[in-house]
Computed example of a mutant assay.
Amino acid sequence: MIRMLKGNRTIRSFARDTEGAALTEFGMVAPILCLLVMGIFDLAHTQYTSVLVNGAMQDAGRNLTLESAGSQQSSIDQKVIDQVQNVVPANATVTLEKLSHFDFSDIGEAEEFDDENGDTICNNNEVFVDANGNGTWDANRGSTGIGGARDAVLYTAVVTYPRLFPMYGLAGMDQNVTVRAATVLRNQPYDEQDRSTETGNCP
């Protein structure tokens, strides 16, 4: 009987002992807290990168509208790349694309064709307007490059880099971040716009 009483006291004493409770609780909360903190920093860095890329594109867009832009494309592109690489890891990839169009309304539009069979597909030797002059029908009628006078140009940058914090696995996120920015500009009217087009036949 005396042994049972002593045993009960020991159990009650052990139950009232709270030493180490804070460490145990912290061990349970720490992973979630770390994930939250890293996620906030990751989101903030992504937003900052996006703002910087958009700003660099706007600045480059203004320079590309000038008549002298043809000889300065590489230096303008490099300036964008240099600005982006200041805030992203060294192994980041920066892809720049320029597509010129006759007008703003042409951006993102497919080349027109005579849909004789009504299937909305360019085929069966149907005639199409070869707006970009590459000899084939394209879902995007833009021509590679900045074009000529008065042309509307879509200038796009795609930046891809690995996340700065190793929390993507815990959160089920992609290992890489992709930031996309674009600006639309119109070349200065330093000459008459070339609106000549050719036709081709769909395959």
Rank of each mutant, 00 (worst) to 15 (best):
I81H: 00
V158Y: 01
L170K: 12
P31V: 06
I146V: 08
G200H: 10
A181Q: 15
G55F: 05
M173I: 13
D130T: 06
Y48L: 11
Q193Y: 11
D151Y: 05
M167L: 10
I32S: 07
S100E: 11
E192N: 12
M57R: 01
G172M: 14
G147K: 10
Y161K: 00
L43C: 05
V53N: 08
Q78M: 00
S74Y: 04
G172R: 15
R186Q: 15
C34L: 15
M57G: 11
I11M: 12
T49Y: 08
D191E: 10
S71M: 05
V177S: 12
Q83L: 11
A69F: 08
N187H: 03
L35Y: 03
E116T: 06
P203T: 10
Q175P: 12
G142F: 06
P31F: 03
I121F: 04
F14V: 15
R141A: 02
G148P: 10
G108D: 02
R180F: 13
F113T: 00
E198F: 12
A139E: 06
S50E: 11
V179G: 09
R62G: 11
P166C: 13
V53Q: 07
N187Q: 09
Y155G: 09
N140S: 09
A152K: 03
Q78K: 01
G169V: 07
M167H: 01
H45F: 01
L64M: 13
I146T: 10
R62N: 12
S143Y: 02
L43A: 13
P162G: 09
S13Y: 05
E67Y: 01
Y48F: 13
E19Q: 05
D59M: 06
L52E: 04
G27C: 03
T136W: 05
A131Y: 09
T144H: 10
F128W: 13
V129Y: 07
A181Y: 05
A139L: 09
A182R: 09
T183F: 11
S196G: 02
E25W: 14
M167P: 02
R186E: 15
Q73C: 02
A15H: 06
H45Y: 00
N134V: 10
R180N: 08
V158I: 11
A22G: 12
L33M: 11
E112T: 01
G135W: 14
A152P: 05
T95A: 00
G7L: 12
V88R: 07
Q188G: 06
C34S: 03
G55E: 01
G70S: 04
S71Q: 13
N134L: 06
I11A: 12
A152G: 03
R12L: 15
M57V: 08
E112Q: 07
P162R: 04
T93W: 00
C202P: 15
